[in-house]
Design a protein around this nucleic acid. Structure first.
Lengths: 179, 179
DNA sequence: CGCGACATGTAAGCAGTTACATGATTAT
DNA sequence: ATAATCATGTAACTGCTTACATGTCGCG
C-alpha cells in the first residue's frame, strides 16, 4: 500500500524537510498513529527521489556537514493529492499484546493480574497526561491550516487513551468481583 | 517477540484445536486485537510441534480427510504461563491509515472530506453494532473461566469503537466550522 | 574538550500479506 | 450435482525492527 510513501509526501508537501526532520515527526506527532524509524525513512526518501516525486537540495551546515533538504515535485503533489482523497476500508483492528494477555486472564494468578493492570493504568495515564499537556498548547482550534491535522489527531489520541483507561478499570472491576 | 506463538499456545491450552479451528478464532473473537491468517498459522503450528510445545494427534474425518488436532505439552504450558504473566511495555500507538489521511485534512476538498468522514462513521457504527450484538449473548459476566477473556475483550473493542466514532464526529464538527 | 543533539546511511532478520495450490465433506 | 464450508499447506513479497556504522555541530 506504500503508506509510508504518502505519509512522507504529505509532510514534504507542507514544507521542505530533511530526513532527520521527518524522523522526528514520526516519533512524536505522527507517531501517535503512524510510527517509523530513520532506518525505514532514509531508504524511502531515496526511492521517492528516484521516482521523481521529491527532489533533494543539499545544504551545507557549518563547515562540511551535508543536509539533504527534500521538496515535493508537481508529480509528487499530484500523487499525494489523489491518495489523500481516496476512500478507506476500515483499518483492521490493531494488534495489542496486553489485550491478548488479558484474553487469557484466567491463566494469571489474581494478585499478579491486578498488579499488571495497575501498571498499565499508570502507563496509560502518563501517556494521556502528556497528550493533554501538548493539547493545552492550542488555546483553541488552530487557524493555521498545517496545524489543523495535529490538533484533530491529538484529540483522537486523547479519546483513545481515555477509552483504554476506562477499559482497564472495567477489567479490574470485573475480575476482582470474581476472586 | 513470537507473539503469535503465545496466542496459539494460549488457545490450545484451553482445549485441543486444529489449525482450522485456530484460524477461525483469529478471524473473529481474537481478531479484534490479534488477527492472523492460515498462511501464518500452519507454519507456526509446525514449528511449535518441532519445539515440543504442542503435539499433534491425527483424526480421520469421513473416509480419508486427516484433521490434525493439536494439544499442549507440559513444556508448552509452562512456556505459556510464564509469558502470560510478564509485564508489558505500553503497546506502541497502532497504525491507522484513515487517521493519517485526516492528519492531512487540509489537503482534501471540504465536501469530499465530509463524504469520507460520513462513510467512516457508517463503517464504525456497523462494526459497533456487530460487537454489541455479540456482547448481548452474554446476559451477564460469564461464569465459565474460558469465556471471561472473550467478554473482557469484547467490552474493550466496544469502548474502542465508541471512542473512534466520537472522534469522527469531532473531526466533522471542527472541520465544518471552518468552511 | 566532552556530551547531547544533529545527521545519514546499510544489513540481517522477523512478521505479516497475498497469492498459489489442492482436495474432502456436508447440506441442499 | 454443486456450492459452501471444512481442511492443510507453500512461495514470493512487503513492511518493519534491531543492530551495525559513521561522522559533525553547538553548547557549556
Amino acid at each position: 500500500m506504500r503508506t509510508l510513501k504518502y505519509a512522507i509526501l504529505g509532510l514534504i508537501n507542507r514544507e521542505p524537510l530533511t530526513g532527520y526532520d521527518i524522523t522526528k515527526k514520526f516519533s512524536d506527532s505522527i507517531g501517535n498513529f503512524w510510527a517509523a524509524k530513520h532506518s525505514q525513512i532514509y531508504p524511502e526518501l531515496k526511492k521517492l527521489a528516484e521516482e521523481k516525486l521529491i527532489v533533494c537540495d543539499i545544504k551545507i551546515a557549518g563547515e562540511v556537514l551535508e543536509k539533504k533538504l527534500y521538496s515535493i515535485t508537481p508529480k509528487g503533489r499530484e500523487d499525494f493529492l489523489s491518495w489523500v482523497a481516496m476512500d478507506e476500508p476500515m483499518t483492521p483492528p490493531p494488534k495489542d499484546v496486553f489485550r491478548l494477555r488479558m484474553y487469557f486472564a484466567e491463566s494469571i494468578v489474581p494478585a499478579h493480574r491486578q498488579t499488571l493492570l495497575d501498571q498499565q493504568v499508570l502507563k496509560h495515564e502518563a501517556k494521556l497526561q502528556q497528550l493533554v499537556t501538548t493539547m493545552s498548547a492550542y488555546a483553541k482550534v488552530p487557524s493555521q491550516e498545517a496545524a489543523l491535522g495535529d490538533y484533530l489527531l491529538l484529540d483522537g489520541a486523547i479519546l483513545r487513551e481515555k477509552a483504554y483507561i476506562t477499559w482497564l478499570h472495567n477489567v479490574l472491576r470485573i475480575t476482582n468481583n470474581r476472586n
